[in-house]
Design a protein around this nucleic acid. Sequence first.
DNA 1: AAGACGATCCTG
DNA 2: AGGATCGTCTTT
Length: 173
Amino acid sequence: MTANTTRLTATFFARDTVMVARELVGKTLVRVFPEGHVRRYRITETEAYCGADDLACHASKGRTPRTEVMFGAGGRIYVYLIYGMYWMLNVVTGPEEEPSAVLIRGLAGFDGPGRVGRELRLERSFYGEDLETSPRLRIEDAPAGKHIVAAPRIGIGYAGEPWTSMNWRFREA
DNA sequence: AAGACGATCCTG
DNA sequence: AGGATCGTCTTT
């Protein structure tokens, strides 16, 4: 048997954000490093950020150079620097003009969005990269497998209700 | 031009 | 509990 190495395309990402967030748990993130070596990681935790109405979503603050990529169709990378230190990895979701994304919060062995970015050596140039064609970052399909639990999102208290209570964080049980 | 602060992590 | 560290957005 050969391993399943089906690369996920725009048709997977350009769907309902919460659905994509849930389904991304267990999928395989593949990073080709500048030195040429390849590492594969199982995605263990994600969060959904759902459109301009979701006050926890950066796009709710408006269309700016930073949030621009989220307004496009699903399948591209949204990265941003937080606390002057950590690059957060997001996958843009949904159709065009519906600014939403899924934050990759954890990979097997690398728990936490800051650790994910550090491990993958993300930086500014990943902004807008197309997951369908990028030579250095891709996501491959994988069997559903593990049980997945939903919980409120982390670090978004400023958004208030009902956004703080939405169970839009997904992780392996 | 200056200030506030963040979808975090590590150390003490 | 507090510091690191800086891009982005808001206010002057």
